[in-house]
Write a protein that binds this DNA or RNA. Structure first.
Lengths: 205, 205
DNA sequence: GAGTTTTCTGGACGACCGTCAAGATTTTCT
DNA sequence: AGAAAATCTTGACGGTCGTCCAGAAAACTC
C-alpha cells in the first residue's frame, strides 16, 4: 500500500496536471473571447498559452474536450460574479441601484467574455458537445435574476407577478442588446442598462 | 443607341443573372440555417444549390459577398414576415392575442431561420463584413416591436411607459429564450411565448 | 550518475477550405 | 450553321485545420 508520502507525491502530480489544464483552458478562453468560437483553432490557443499544440493534446483528448472544459470553467466564473450582484441591498431603492450598477459593471469589465457567452450559446444550438453545459449556465443566470427579482419583491412587500423564466428572458434581452450597443461604442449603453434594469424590476414585480 | 428590343434582351439577361444569384443565396440560407455559419462552406452551399463551386464564384466575388447578400435577403424576408404580425387588431385583447399568436407562429414555422439570425448576429460581433446589415435587421425588429407596443398603448388609451429599445430588448430576450426551449423540445415553449408576450405588453405599457 | 517517468516539441498526415482558371457546354446572335 | 457570349465544370493550388506520434528535454527516483 502507498505511504502518506506516496500520496503526497501522487497528489502533487495530479495537482500539477490539473493546474496545467486550467492554464491551457484560460488561454483558450482568452482566445475564444477575442476571436469567437468559429475563428479559434488549437494552434491559436497553443500560441496564446506559450506551449505547443502537442501539449494541448497531451492534456486534452481533443478540441471538444478542451472547449467543454472551458465552458465549465466559464460557468464557475459566472456564478461567482453574479452571486455578488445586489447581494447586500436592504431597501428597494438600494436594490434597484445595486442591480443596475452590478449588471453595468460586469458588462463593462467583461464585455468580451459576455460576447463569448452569447457566441457559445448560439453555437450550442448547432453542436451537441457543450449544449448541456450551456443550459446549466442559462439555468444559473435565471436563478440569479430570480434572486434579484424575489429580493426586490420582498423589499417592496409584494409577490412577483411574472414567472422567473420570463423575468430572465427580459433581462437577458436587455443585457444582450446593451452589450451590442456597448461594443459598437454607444456611450449611453451602460446608463440605459441601469435605467432598463430599474424599469423591468418595477414593472415586472 | 440601343433599341427597345435591345433593352428587353439585356434586361432579360440581367434578370437571369439576378435570378441565379437569388437561387444561390437561397441555397446558402438553407445550408446556413441547417449547419450554422461556422460549419458552412462554399462547397456545402454549392452542393445544396445543385451547381458547382465555380458557379458560386461566377456569380459572387467571394464568400463574404455571398454571405452579405444572404443577410440582406434574410432581412427582406424578415420585414415581410414581421409587418404582418398583429397588423389588424381593433381592440386591446385582440392585439394581445394576435401579437402572441404571430410571434409563436413565426417561431414555430421558421425556427431554423431564427436560430440562424441569432447565430449571424453573434458572428457579426466578431466579423465586420455583415455587421451593418445585421444592425439594420435589429433596427427593423425594434420598429416592429415599437409598432405593436404603440398600437397596444393606443388601444388601451395610454402612452407607452418605456423606450422602444427597452421593449425590443425584452421581447428579443423572450423570443430567443423561447427559441432555445422550442429547439430543445419543450412542448410548453410556444404557449409561454404567448403568455410572455401578453405579460410584457401589459406590464411595459 | 544512470535509469525511468513525465512533459513537451515539431513535423507529418489527411481532410477541408476559399479561390482561381482553363476549358467544356449551353445559349444567344447573326 | 457558325460565331460569340454566357454559363458552368473540374481540377489544382496554397493555406489551415485537428490529430497523431517519434523522439527530445526536463524532472524525478534510486
Amino acid at each position: 500500500m502507498t505511504t502518506d508520502a506516496d500520496d503526497r507525491i501522487a497528489r502533487r502530480q495530479v495537482d500539477k496536471f490539473a493546474e496545467r489544464r486550467r492554464q491551457l483552458a484560460d488561454a483558450a478562453l482568452t482566445t475564444l473571447a477575442a476571436e469567437g468560437y468559429a475563428r479559434t483553432s488549437l494552434r491559436d490557443i497553443a500560441r496564446e498559452s506559450g506551449f505547443s499544440v502537442g501539449v494541448v493534446h497531451y492534456y486534452f483528448r481533443d478540441k471538444v474536450e478542451l472547449i467543454t472544459y472551458c465552458v465549465r470553467r466559464y460557468k464557475a466564473a459566472c456564478v461567482e460574479r453574479y452571486d455578488a450582484i445586489a447581494a447586500h441591498a436592504t431597501d428597494a431603492e438600494a436594490l434597484l441601484r445595486d442591480a443596475g450598477d452590478g449588471l453595468a459593471a460586469t458588462l463593462e469589465q467583461d464585455a468580451l467574455m459576455h460576447r463569448l457567452w452569447y457566441d457559445l450559446r448560439s453555437q450550442a444550438l448547432f453542436e451537441e458537445s457543450f449544449r448541456l453545459d450551456v443550459a446549466d449556465i442559462d439555468a444559473s443566470l435565471e436563478r440569479m435574476i430570480a434572486r434579484i427579482v424575489d429580493t426586490y419583491a420582498e423589499l417592496v412587500g409584494v409577490a412577483p407577478r411574472c414567472p422567473s423564466a420570463l423575468a430572465y428572458a427580459a433581462f437577458d434581452g436587455l443585457f444582450q442588446q446593451t452589450l451590442l450597443r456597448h461594443l459598437s461604442g454607444d456611450p449611453a449603453a451602460l446608463d440605459d442598462l441601469r435605467a432598463g434594469t430599474r424599469t423591468l424590476l418595477t414593472h415586472l414585480v
